[in-house]
C-alpha cells in the first residue's frame, strides 16, 4: 500500500495536483450552492413569517419537500429536468437535438434549492430570536420597515443564525459529493477517475476522505471564528 503513495504525489504519474484542483472545485461548488441557498432560504423564511396565508403555505411546502426528499432525487430532477427544459427552449429558437445543462450550474442549482430549504428554517429561528424590544425601539426611532430590517434586525439576526448556518454548510459540503453522479469533476468524481485508472480505489477514496475531512475542519473553524466575532461586545 505505502509503495503506491507516489500516486497521490505531485511528481510524474502523481494525482496530487488533480485531486487538489478537484478539492477546489468542491469548495467552489459548495460555496456557490450555499450562497444561492441563502437567497432561497431568505425568501423561504420571509414566506414562513408572512402575515398572508399563501406565502406561508408555499414556503412551508418548499421547506418540507426539499428536506424530506433524498438530495440525490433533487439532483436528478435538476439534471434531467434542466436539460429537458433547455432543449425545449433551444428547439423553440430553431436549434435541434439535445442540449445539456452545464454540470456546475446544475449542481449549484440543486445544492442551492436543498440548502435553501434548510437555511429557511435557520433564518426563521434567528429572526424569532431577535428581541421584541428591538423592533419596538426601531419603531420608536421612526425607522421605516426597510431601515429597521436592514439596520437593526439583520445584524442581530445573523448572530443567531451563524451556528445553524455552520451546520447547513457542513451538510452542503458533504452533499456536494453527490454532484459527482452528474459528471462534474469535483473531489469525489476525480477520486473515482483516479481509482479507476490506477486500480487503487482504497488509496484514492482514503485521499478523498482526508481532503473532505480537512475542508470540513477548516471551514468549521471559520464559522466558529465568525460566531465568536459576532458576539464581541455583547455580555453573555
Amino acid at each position: 500500500m505505502l509503495d503506491k503513495l507516489h500516486l497521490l504525489g505531485f511528481g510524474e504519474g502523481g494525482w496530487g495536483a488533480a485531486l487538489l484542483g478537484a478539492a477546489l472545485m468542491t469548495l467552489v461548488l459548495s460555496l456557490l450552492g450555499f450562497l444561492l441557498g441563502a437567497v432561497f432560504g431568505s425568501l423561504g423564511a420571509a414566506g414562513r413569517l408572512s402575515k398572508n396565508r399563501l406565502p406561508r403555505a408555499l414556503a412551508a411546502g418548499y421547506s418540507t419537500i426539499f428536506r424530506g426528499v433524498p438530495d440525490l432525487l433533487t439532483i436528478y430532477l435538476f439534471y434531467y429536468g434542466g436539460s429537458i427544459a433547455l432543449t425545449a427552449l433551444a428547439n423553440l429558437f430553431g436549434a435541434t437535438g439535445f442540449v445539456g445543462l452545464p454540470a456546475l450550474a446544475t449542481g449549484v442549482m440543486a445544492i442551492g434549492v436543498v440548502s435553501g430549504a434548510y437555511q429557511a428554517e435557520v433564518y426563521r429561528g434567528a429572526y424569532l430570536a431577535v428581541e421584541r424590544g428591538q423592533f419596538d425601539a426601531s419603531k420608536a426611532l421612526a425607522l421605516s420597515r426597510y431601515q429597521s430590517l436592514l439596520l437593526v434586525v439583520l445584524p442581530q439576526l445573523i448572530r443567531h443564525a451563524i451556528p445553524g448556518l455552520g451546520n447547513v454548510w457542513q451538510l452542503v459540503l458533504k452533499d456536494s459529493a453527490l454532484i459527482s453522479v452528474i459528471g462534474l469533476v469535483e473531489l469525489m468524481r476525480q477520486s473515482q477517475i483516479g481509482a479507476g485508472s490506477t486500480r487503487e480505489p482504497f488509496l484514492f477514496y482514503i485521499a478523498a476522505a482526508v481532503l473532505y475531512f480537512i475542508i470540513a475542519g477548516l471551514t468549521d473553524l471559520t464559522f466558529r471564528a465568525a460566531e465568536a466575532r459576532s458576539w464581541r461586545g455583547i455580555a453573555r
Partner: peptide, 23 residues
C-alpha cells in the same frame, strides 16, 4: 465519530464497497 461525521456518506460507501474490494 469525527471521521464518519466529517466525510460524505458517498465516500464511505465507495471506500467500503470498492476500496475494501481491493483486499
Amino acid at each position: 465519530v469525527a471521521i464518519f461525521r466529517g466525510t460524505p456518506l458517498l465516500v464511505q460507501i465507495f471506500l467500503i464497497y470498492y476500496g475494501l474490494g481491493q483486499f
